[in-house]
Design a binder for these strands. Sequence first.
DNA 1: CTGTTAGCGCGTTCAA
DNA 2: TTGAACGCGCTAACAG
Lengths: 355, 355
Amino acid sequence: MASNQRARQSTQAGAQVGARVRTSGQGARMRDVAQAAGVSLMTVSRALREPHKLSEETRKSVMDAVHKIGYVPNSIAANLASNRSNVVGQIVPSIQNSLYADTVKGTADVLRKAGLHLLLADSGSSPQEEEALIGAFLAQRVAGLILHNTDHTPKALQMIERSGVPVIETGDLPRHPLDMVVSYSNAEAAKAMTLHLGARGYKRIGFVSLDTRLNRRARERLRGYQAGLKSLGLRPDPMLVMEVAPGLTSGAHAMVDMITRSPDVDAIFFAGDVLAVGALFEAQRRGWKVPDRIALAGFDDLDIHQHTVPKLTCLRLPRLEIGRRSAEALLARLRGGDEAPRVDLGFEITQREST
Amino acid sequence: MASNQRARQSTQAGAQVGARVRTSGQGARMRDVAQAAGVSLMTVSRALREPHKLSEETRKSVMDAVHKIGYVPNSIAANLASNRSNVVGQIVPSIQNSLYADTVKGTADVLRKAGLHLLLADSGSSPQEEEALIGAFLAQRVAGLILHNTDHTPKALQMIERSGVPVIETGDLPRHPLDMVVSYSNAEAAKAMTLHLGARGYKRIGFVSLDTRLNRRARERLRGYQAGLKSLGLRPDPMLVMEVAPGLTSGAHAMVDMITRSPDVDAIFFAGDVLAVGALFEAQRRGWKVPDRIALAGFDDLDIHQHTVPKLTCLRLPRLEIGRRSAEALLARLRGGDEAPRVDLGFEITQREST
DNA sequence: CTGTTAGCGCGTTCAA
DNA sequence: TTGAACGCGCTAACAG
């Protein structure tokens, strides 16, 4: 049972952490399996990766030894030797935000079916943090990167280019993508909602988003809103544009502030996060009729939007699908594909009771 | 600029994926840096990991070469050589569930500050899937595992034991933990809420949870509810106990069903997911007064609970803190600690307007 | 403070 | 169909 010739284990462990028992790395190596099965190292390697190239007989005896010993392959060594990797890195702005969670889920599912795994981190929307993470992920020799942000530091760009790893950007449709893109247009989506509100007769349409200086997606949405107003022939009014922090409370405050300052506002488009839900609850508390006194529209279609009273009009973005398609595009490239697709998955407007 | 002596690159790429240009793995190696700086391999290695052991002069010249060449260390090779790992694996029941997202966030933050990274996957609450993931993560030679589920297959247990990796369980306080535990008691929490409802005068207290057969946490909560009833001297009634699927809609239906079948029910404790919120919205739609007609209580303290009308009474569980402390316990072990802490982070009851 | 030697556990290559 | 030699890129151990 005990593998011989391994004085290194006890030595190392003793040197490193004192004379502890709980020594990590007890695992058997391929060589141990080979000995147990009476074959060479390579035969074990093949039995695990290319079983069809072995005779049924030897394959079976090898697998028996594998199970008996409880051998767990060392894919880190495999990766080093083969110069491949079965890990993909994904960086989202926030791990806690459920919208990104959908995308991560889509990615993880597809990758997993292909035998790949997901290294996940969040950048907090900071390009500097993203740069550090990209460096760390490249050091892990990830097979690919999936980035939500489309703004990257020069150093990040340089590292990515030098590494040659395939990259997917998922947060918007950038003019000059790094490589592959799987996303939707924030500007088009915001414009579409603005036009939708206009078509329903609203004339004084407010716009509330997250910080447009730090967040390109918020900036694009603002641009779309402005384009929408223009198409509608409505006059832009700085008093009807606000930027706030994420959160339900922010949405509530934004609505109250805007109505207080501009009592003639008749609709507010909350272009992000859970702002619209927060506003709706505040309207309930204050007894403001939605949509009669004030119409409210949100961005993503959160589950809750169809359960509130009234139900919330919003955009529906293909978050999960973005994750899936990103992973699929990555897989295609890893399998030898040479394309750099730019996939626009679009969006839908979901008209409900709040507008 | 171009590194010589690397015919292997073009050869391999050509063989593998046809005569493509986009060859991955262009990265410089440590040897290239050593040559450029006119030092040995080891000096570069030290400059990167133990800079204080070098003279200021050589350190600087090495770092210059590193930056000039754009060298990105290969931590996969480093891990293999040093028999260490800078990746931790975490398996949660669902990536999309925001509660687990909090835990993941806590873990990721602490790990990242320590230079470790997070391999994330979801098991969908299936022990079989968890087993497969554990195998895959062990193959990646993760430095540790953080598992939410406390039920594991025999094979999973065997693999973990053989590997010797430290493990944290976070979903409950198991009687016989695998190794370390950072969690809270589902049974105690559910009992506490039941007692709380009893103390507020409710006599016919319903209980709605997720599937107790597949989910030990739901089972523990049911046990706590039953213990609470007993303490209160209330008679258990099978009609007041339901198991449903997750989701807002499930909560709504559960409430309606229970009230229809047992009109005398005066409070419902929704022991999981967003069930309570869904029920509250349904009550709003039907004009049922909360808490006068029916009191509603939830489990976790979701953001939304303090924004609904009325605000929702619930338990508050330290999800983020569980993630943080898990990572910290793991780090302590990796740094040579020998303890197997069992951390009970407790819970709080947040009394609001709905009960 | 710096370099040399040996080898981490596996895959690739080529020969048998 | 199987095996031996070699190396992936780096670090540990020791020597100077």
